[in-house]
């Protein structure tokens, strides 16, 4: 993974973190707020897995396995909170 991609990924992660804190203060709709915060978790997870862990260049099975974790766990949490 080249340095530019790593720096861009760090910038995206910091921006998404600040955005997730900001979302709670401006979004009144609780369901939309939950969806946005948990969607941000998935996006941040994808950055860590693909760029920091370098799984974007790894065998597809391992990449999809890790990506499914950061999609499924927030999705399950969202369903629990919306029930």
């Amino acid at each position: 993974m080249n340095t530019t991609k790593i720096i861009a990924s760090w910038f995206i992660l910091i921006t998404l973190t600040l955005l997730s804190v900001f979302v709670g203060q401006v979004i009144g709709n609780h369901s939309l707020f939950l969806f946005l915060v948990l969607a941000i978790v998935s996006l941040k997870g994808q950055q860590i897995i693909d760029i920091f862990m370098e799984l974007k260049e790894a065998p597809r099975f391992w990449r999809l396995l890790l990506l499914s974790y950061v999609l499924l766990v927030p999705a399950i949490i969202l369903v629990i909170y919306l029930l």
Binding site: I6, S9, I14, I51
Partner: peptide, 8 residues
């Protein structure tokens, strides 16, 4: 996050 960035 920044620690992970430096490790990358």
């Amino acid at each position: 996050i920044t620690s992970s960035f430096f490790v990358a």
